[in-house]
Amino acid sequence: MSNAPLLEVKNLKKYFNTPRGLLHAVDDVTFTLERGKTLGVVGESGCGKSTTGRSILRLLEPTGGEVLFEGQDITKLSKEEMRAKRKDMQIIFQDPYSSINPRKTVGQIIADPLEINNIITDKTQKEKRVRELMEIVGLADRLYGTYPHELDGGRRQRIGIARALALEPKFIVCDEPVSALDVSIQAQILNLLNQLQKDMGLTYMFITHDLSVVNHFSDDIAVMYLGRLIEKAPAEELFANPTHPYTQALLSAIPIPQLHNRRERILLKGEITSPINPPKACRFAQRCPYATDRCRSEEPGLKEIKPGHFVACFLTDN
């Protein structure tokens, strides 16, 4: 197809009604994602990164904005059309313990999407395809008839990956796919996802709170804070020149398993404020060491300070 980006998200909004007011989970998020690339989305709990991923797939209905997938605005699709579209857009969930049905065997779980979408109806063909998928993600053939509770977290996550791959999608939202795993297993899964991307030309949106993982994995990184996208840049650029004060603090807070070259830590005061009825101001202003009166009365928009490097902060004006 064309050279257009695979995914364009424009002014995406997702608000939730709560007894205490409107919760702005995702507020005016805009970005593009090129075919075959990985966008890492980082932020702390409650910043709206998972909600962004789910709103893009319309697992949650966006409150506003557009999601252009291959040039087509999928927020306007009917339920039926959307279901067909989801063959191209899949998700891998965070928790390999609760995201697969404990009463189905590994074979059945992976066959589910093939059945639901009537991809393969012939029984032997289906089994052949499932075993093929198991091989791709590194699940031993003998596990075909086992149940999830017999398997460890790493293997369960491989089931989730095989299930997502079953429909040969173009785009996968990986929602914290390795957070629940031990480091040695985490590395196995990251390498697998990397290999699959190379082999199949997949495009990933990789949601995580672990900055060293996102750095390893992504072409571009987007940093979110309280529903806002506050900085986006190529991974190397972001780590070399973090510009938003929150990004700087976030990067400095990563514990590094090294004794030398330790970096100066920027300690933030306070904690994330409530996303319910947020004031018209920079949402980071309360914790920001550089906040001015302007930051407390106006909301900064995303600006391109260098080719590909976007920041939403008034400090970049000077």
Partner: peptide, 8 residues
């Protein structure tokens, strides 16, 4: 197994 933050 740990991603190296300085050498991506």
């Amino acid at each position: 197994s740990l991603p190296n933050i300085e050498d991506r």
